[in-house]
Design a protein around this nucleic acid. Structure first.
Lengths: 188, 188
DNA sequence: GATTATAATCTAATAGTATTAGACAAATCC
DNA sequence: GGATTTGTCTAATACTATTAGATTATAATC
């Protein structure tokens, strides 16, 4: 027994991410992950610091992927076009990677600088997107918070099936953003 | 042994709700709950259908309390004043009952009519609040979704510590709402 | 190529959950 | 006061995470 499985941390965390997106973040246990990888649970301790460590790695991966997706979505775009593209990318990420997205939203241990930094980077992209609006310092922060609240709120409610009525969600989302952008364009 | 503890379902679920708000929803286990109530775990099965049943009861309680709070907040108010009051009540609920609020947002089993109805009622209050804007049918639904996304998004991000920078959150929230209301007031 | 060292995986054991079954005692009913 | 119901318990099972330490596969060295 004990033929090597050829694992490494990246592979393990990726497998966990897949489980998160298919079964839900809460169903990612060392047991299910070990089974998926064809290995016994204690083996995972060589790649990850227990369940808590695994969750942290998932969150890190998730933040990085989201940041990357958002970054790509606004390449070569600016102003309203960029905001719309980013918002769509955000929403799309929530829907294709519901488990990973959940991981990005969980409160991080403030002492965990690496994770906090990864979470901050997501916000940085949003700030960049709004740069062309030339807000005063504080106005920019408020604007980013507003945009984030709105996109996060819509995306999570949609993802959890919170919108019961079967009326076009794309239309709601489009209106949500244009309403916000219209209001931003007004004198402030 | 076996002196009676004088429990009933309401008492058990209330205790669970307290645990949810102090320790977090995920820390509500039959073990912690039993200990809080001075009883052994199997006893709880007489009041609640296992852990899954307990969670469902918590969600039900949470939805009802939130609905009640929102309802109270808009009594005797209308228009913009009502929307602002409701939004503040919503946010305040999220902050004073973080555990319960989490429970209201979790996706319900669509077959669980009672819970689905309780979740829907929360939305009904929002619809009522927007009634004075006299939207066309579909416009009303979009408007409610938008308001909900925005309030939910802000409240959950605030609650989970998602806003890192220490800049007045009340101000952000105020702007978020007035921006939305301003845009709603524009011809549509 | 044999030997040694390192690293990956395993088994075994402990402790904490949820859950079910069934015993026993306390309250209630007649 | 005896019978019944109801609340709580103990005991047992099955799952999870975690730690310790044995074992084996690969890599490194001579």
């Amino acid at each position: 027994m004990a033929t090597r499985a050829g694992l490494d941390q990246v592979l393990v965390v990726r497998a966990a991410a897949e489980l998160a997106d298919t079964l839900g973040l809460n169903e990612v246990t060392l047991a299910t992950l070990a089974e998926k990888l064809g290995v016994r649970t204690p083996t995972l301790y060589h790649y990850v610091d227990g369940l808590a460590g695994l969750r942290r790695e998932i969150a890190l991966l998730a933040c990085r992927e989201l940041t990357q997706n958002l970054g790509k979505s606004i390449m070569g775009k600016a102003g309203e076009e960029a905001v719309l593209a980013m918002a769509q990318a955000y929403r799309s990420f929530v829907n294709t990677h519901p488990g990973l997205y959940s991981a990005t939203v969980q409160a991080a241990d403030p002492a965990d600088q690496e994770l906090v930094a990864a979470q901050t980077e997501v916000v940085e992209v949003a700030i960049q997107t709004l740069a062309s609006y030339h807000f005063e310092k504080e106005d920019a922060i408020h604007a980013v918070r507003m945009l984030r609240s709105l996109v996060h709120g819509f995306a999570t409610l949609e993802s959890s099936g919170g919108f019961g009525i079967p009326l076009d969600l794309n239309e709601t989302f489009r209106r949500l953003l244009t309403t916000f952008l219209t209001a931003l364009a007004l004198p402030h």
